[in-house]
Amino acid sequence: MSPARSALVLAGLMASAGIAHFVAPRKFDSIVPRSLPGSPRLWTAASGVAELTLAAGLVLPATRRASARATALFFAGVFPANAKMAYDWRYRSTIARAIAYGRLPLQVPLILWARHAGRENVRRGAVGVDR
C-alpha cells in the first residue's frame, strides 16, 4: 500500500479511536495509569483530542509527515495504558486476557505503520517506488 493511502487508512483508525474516547469514555478512564496527575477523564478526553488531531494531520498532505511521526510517538506514549490494562485484566477470562496482552506487542506494528504513512511517494521511471 502506498504511504499516502496508508496514511488515510491510519487516519480513519485514529479518528475512530478518538471518537470512541468521547462516546464510551469509561473504558478508557479505567486504563489511565494512576501515576498521572488529574482525573482519568481529563486524560481520556486529551488523548481523544490528540487522536482526532493526528487523524486530521494524516489526511492533509502538507502535515502528513509530521503527523505520522507524532502518531508513532503517540503509539509509544500510550503503551503504559496498555500495560496497565494487561495488569488489571490478569484475572479475567482467557479471551479478555488475550485481548489485553495482545495490545502490548501490537504497539510495534502500529508505530511502524505510522512511520510508513509518513513516507513520501517517489516515482522512478514508470514504476512507483516507496522510499
Rank of each mutant, 00 (worst) to 15 (best):
M1D: 08
S2V: 11
P3R: 09
P3D: 06
A4R: 04
A4D: 15
R5G: 14
L8C: 09
L8F: 10
L8V: 15
L10R: 14
L10S: 05
A11L: 01
A11S: 02
G12M: 06
L13Y: 10
L13K: 09
L13I: 14
A17P: 09
I19E: 05
I19D: 14
A20E: 03
A20I: 04
A20G: 05
H21Q: 04
F22E: 02
V23I: 06
V23E: 03
A24T: 05
P25E: 01
P25R: 00
D29H: 00
S30Y: 01
S30N: 10
I31M: 13
V32A: 05
V32G: 01
V32K: 01
R34I: 14
R34F: 09
R34W: 02
R34Y: 12
L36Q: 11
L36C: 07
L36W: 01
P37K: 03
G38F: 06
S39G: 13
P40M: 02
P40W: 04
L42I: 15
W43S: 00
W43T: 00
T44K: 00
A45H: 08
G48T: 00
G48A: 07
G48W: 00
A50I: 08
E51W: 00
T53R: 05
L54Y: 04
L54A: 06
G57N: 01
V59W: 08
V59E: 08
L60I: 14
A62Y: 06
A62E: 06
T63H: 01
A66V: 06
S67N: 04
S67F: 03
A68P: 04
T71N: 02
T71Y: 02
A72N: 05
L73A: 05
A76E: 00
A76N: 03
G77C: 06
V78E: 05
V78R: 02
F79L: 13
F79A: 09
F79P: 11
P80E: 02
P80Y: 04
P80R: 12
N82G: 10
N82S: 07
A83T: 08
K84R: 12
A86D: 09
Y87Q: 15
D88Q: 07
W89Q: 14
R90H: 10
Y91R: 15
Y91W: 14
R92A: 11
S93W: 12
T94S: 09
T94Q: 11
I95F: 10
R97G: 03
R97L: 08
R97C: 09
A98W: 02
G102Y: 06
R103D: 06
R103T: 09
P105G: 05
P105K: 03
P105T: 06
L106C: 05
L106V: 13
Q107I: 13
Q107C: 13
V108E: 10
V108Y: 10
L110S: 07
I111D: 04
I111Q: 03
L112I: 08
L112S: 11
W113G: 05
A114G: 03
R115P: 07
G118A: 07
G118N: 09
G118R: 04
G118M: 08
R119N: 14
N121Y: 12
V122H: 10
R123G: 15
R124S: 13
G125Y: 03
A126D: 13
A126C: 12
A126S: 15
V129N: 13
D130P: 11
D130Y: 08
D130T: 11
R131K: 11
R131H: 15
R131N: 12
